Amino acid sequence: MTLGVTHCVAAVPTYPISKRRHKPPRSFSLRILSKSNQVSDLKTQQSTFYSLEPTRECECFNMYKQQVPYSQAWDWQKSIVEDKKTLIERNEHCPDSLFVLQHRPVFTLGTASSEQFLKFDIKDAPFDIYRTERGGEVTYHGPGQIVMYPIMNLRNHKMDLHWYLRSLEEVIIRALSKTFCIKASRLEGLTGVWYGNQKLAAIGIRVKQWITYHGLAVNVNTDLTPFRWIVPCGLQGYQVGSIKGLLEEFQTSAECGIADLPDPDDGQLLDITCRSLIHEFSEVFQVRINYETMSSLDLQAI
């Protein structure tokens, strides 16, 4: 099965999965705890509660400080998907993976994207252009934008693409609200995360045999100028916004307590956003994040 979502999406870089042996998959472990935190017999304890602890692991390659060329990321993406398909065919454990990074400036189009949404001559493009196998129209990726690529086996979660899309949106909405006091939301009939008329994050997926790839891109302190050279996601009449832009607006309004907001000029704004997104991803999908590292040899390909 190959499915595509036709809203604006991001490209998906991938990394080789660790060769170590994995424990057999388990969705959750159910513990019965008393108020005193001691394991107890349900028959004799009246004050008990159930605590669901996620035991499903997610390998996280957090390379958000790297600006990865799109072509390299695309090769990683397709390689990892094939690896996971092989694991499933062998009835072996197929762990989830999460890749976090930035891209060098690039425009990407979906399979059926229309070039009419480009406001420049494609033969004289300001940046590289890639037509991918994803659904959706043209979008831009560049420095200052956090890109997250979950490559997940939905058999271990929920085999429902609408649920998966809404879950990705929920990750971003929670991160923006809890960390930046940005009350972002969904817009009916559209995929992504918005603040008023401004689109802060693009989301899109591709699924093969219930393995997801592509993902989400959040504008943190991105230079939004390149978005003016296209019709982002093919949506006329909408704007593109960023976390930094909204924080600057909040500094001059009563939208949120100023003391509670990060400085929009803080060089750590990407750090803060990245940590928050990974945390909320873990919470929404109920996975335990295991940070992985790449060897210097692997990094030479970037």
Rank of each mutant, 00 (worst) to 15 (best):
I243S: 02
S253R: 09
G241I: 05
S185I: 10
E169Y: 13
I146P: 03
G196V: 04
F250M: 09
R228I: 01
I172L: 13
H141E: 00
T139I: 05
V231G: 01
Q251P: 01
R174V: 07
L246Y: 09
A201V: 06
I205D: 12
T273N: 01
L187D: 05
A217R: 00
L246W: 06
L187K: 14
G204L: 00
A217M: 02
Q209W: 11
L247C: 11
F227L: 04
T225I: 05
K178D: 14
A175C: 14
L235S: 01
S185C: 15
Y140M: 02
T252I: 07
T212S: 13
V171P: 06
G237V: 10
G237C: 11
N219G: 06
R206V: 07
G142R: 08
Q198H: 14
A217Y: 00
A217C: 01
C256H: 15
G215Y: 07
Y213T: 10
I230E: 11
K183V: 11
A201R: 00
L269S: 10
I211Y: 09
D160S: 10
K158T: 05
M159P: 11
E249P: 00
S167N: 12
K208M: 10
P150F: 07
G144C: 08
I146L: 09
Y149R: 05
T222M: 12
I172Y: 06
R174S: 14
E169S: 11
G241M: 07
L168F: 09
Y149T: 05
T222P: 02
G241C: 05
L200V: 13
L187R: 12
A201Y: 01
V240C: 05
Q145W: 10
T179D: 05
F250N: 01
V240S: 06
I272L: 15
R186D: 02
L269W: 13
H141K: 01
I172T: 13
P262A: 13
